[in-house]
Design a protein around this nucleic acid. Sequence first.
DNA 1: TGAAAAGGCAACCAAAAAGTTGCATATAAC
DNA 2: GTTATATGCAACTTTTTGGTTGCCTTTTCA
Lengths: 103, 103
Amino acid sequence: MSMDAVFKALADPMRRRLLDSLHKRNGQTLNELCEGRDMTRQAVTKHLGILEGANLIATQKRGREKLHYLNPVPIHNIADRWIGKYERTRLRALTNLKKQLEG
Amino acid sequence: MSMDAVFKALADPMRRRLLDSLHKRNGQTLNELCEGRDMTRQAVTKHLGILEGANLIATQKRGREKLHYLNPVPIHNIADRWIGKYERTRLRALTNLKKQLEG
DNA sequence: TGAAAAGGCAACCAAAAAGTTGCATATAAC
DNA sequence: GTTATATGCAACTTTTTGGTTGCCTTTTCA
């Protein structure tokens, strides 16, 4: 699974808002996810496609509706494999930074 | 501080590699950061400018050289304020996801 | 059965991003 | 002082991205 796709997907504020919306209420349809957004349905579809491509959401058809479910695994992986590296050395890096900028 | 600028800055693989390089060895000059990258110095400068704009690195001039230091705070903030939200409900979300996709 | 609702698909457009070339400036080294 | 090194700045090109319009298919419901 490509970490790059996840980072790219998270780069757009609208896509993060869509994730937030699913975080509040999971399993929303496309139309529900479009409500209140200043954007056409087709544009939202594209964003959801990118999120799905990054495996951040999974979809399921129910009749003529399409349901969207949040998949937190890629976010967890980024936190674990990438951010963790910076977290572990955070205090040391901060100390170095201050030292260099002062000295 | 804009979280959006941080997400956007992290979206590019070259910029993440630059951060990784500083994580390995902090305080590198521009020329050092250019070594081994298939890209002009000017392109690297632009990437570093974006990272600095997102407050992910801090710079300092030493004579004719420019030193670059990693600032882990924005990454920490994202982990804390944004990712944390998804981490906390991760198991529940996963359970829901499996249930829906199976049912 | 026929209209309305939910969504898919593709072409097109504009703006932003990524990268280049070319030249200028400042510092160091000889 | 002159040359080499390290970096800055700006115009330009190309690619990617975000968004729209227009039309088609499928499902529901009166």
